[in-house]
């Protein structure tokens, strides 16, 4: 399996650390309430199809990236720097 690092280019999966759903980017406000925090920390979708996951190019440039990928076909659809996504939403 190979992933694309937006900084370094295509690399072997071994260079990446897997974190999980990119929902981790949407940290609630401290006073958002128990339900929202529970959602953020614990609840995850497990789709057969397209996912948006957070990976870190840990053995490479250390960039955190959001990878869109199909869990059925294993196709890697898109890689975006987490900082770019946050910059866009800010």
């Amino acid at each position: 399996m190979r992933l694309i690092c937006p900084v370094c280019g295509e690399r072997d999966r071994r260079e990446f650390y897997y974190m999980g759903d990119a929902v981790a980017l949407q940290r609630p406000e401290p006073d958002a309430g128990a339900a929202e925090w529970d959602d953020y920390v614990h609840l995850r979708e497990n789709p057969a199809g397209v996912t948006r996951d957070l990976w870190q190019h840990e053995a490479g440039c250390a960039a955190w990236i959001v990878v869109r990928r199909n869990t059925v076909t294993h196709e890697v659809l898109e890689s975006v720097l987490a900082t770019d996504l946050k910059g866009a939403s800010a």
Binding site: A24, L25, Q56, E58, W64, A82, T83, K86, A90
Partner: peptide
Amino acid sequence: MRHLEFVHQCLRPE
């Protein structure tokens, strides 16, 4: 180290 990079890049890039 990974956690610090996560917090910086994914939560507080500003």
